[in-house]
Amino acid sequence: MANDPIHQFHINKIIPIEVGGLDLSFTNASLFMVATVAVTALFLIMSTSGRGLVPTRWQSMAEMSYEFVASTLRSSAGNEGMRFFPFVFSLFMFVLIANLIGMFPYFFTVTSQIIVTFALAMLVIGTVIVYGFAKHGMKFLGLFVPHGVPGVLVPLVTMIEVISFLSRPISLSVRLFANMLAGHITLKVFAGFVISLAASESLGLFGPVTSVLPLIMTVALTGLEFLVAFLQAYVFTVLTCMYLNDALHPSH
């Protein structure tokens, strides 16, 4: 089973908990969620404990992540969007650190579970809907009726807008989930080739020699996966900011 690329996504119970027939066990997935939060919080809190006017390296990294998310949010949702800053920042750090922790061999990738990414996406869309109605009331529905569309086309365009709005949580969650899942499967498959070729008896000396090729591929893919880990966290954040912008300014 060592070569099974799906094995890494198995969820194993560590502390079985069952409440009213629901399985709420503390699993390896839960463990890595806790690890993600612990790493994020410790990094941000300990690095800034010095409150240095001249930052240390770690403090500089914490400040960079703060300013990175702040500028992303401000550029897509304006200064009003800064009220969502703690939420967006938490999302970005959670996804980023979860993705990066997943890059360690034998570690579980929290974001490779569709239910996790879907829950995060629904949290975003839920925030957009609740805040949009709370702030604009029924005017929030103007989001679905673009200005300057000929009267005949309004129902059609509105329908398209509604569908696109409803597909947002799906696209948002599937994009992150699929990227992490596919990346880890690819890595595992190529790494598996290295072992299979090297251990192959029928290929003789040819096996170990050619096993260098998938090894090189694995190294290259690891670099790519680090890029993907950051990029997907960034994409998730940017889209969140854009959706929040809709809640702040629903008129097109």
């Binding site: 399985d23 969620m33 939060v37």
Partner: peptide, 22 residues
């Protein structure tokens, strides 16, 4: 079958993270 557990722990951990950040 794993969804309730994942949702619960995600809610707990993300809540803690949000609280710590805020």
């Amino acid at each position: 079958a794993t969804f309730p557990s994942q949702l619960l722990w995600l809610a707990i951990t993300f809540g803690v993270l949000y609280w710590a950040m805020t």
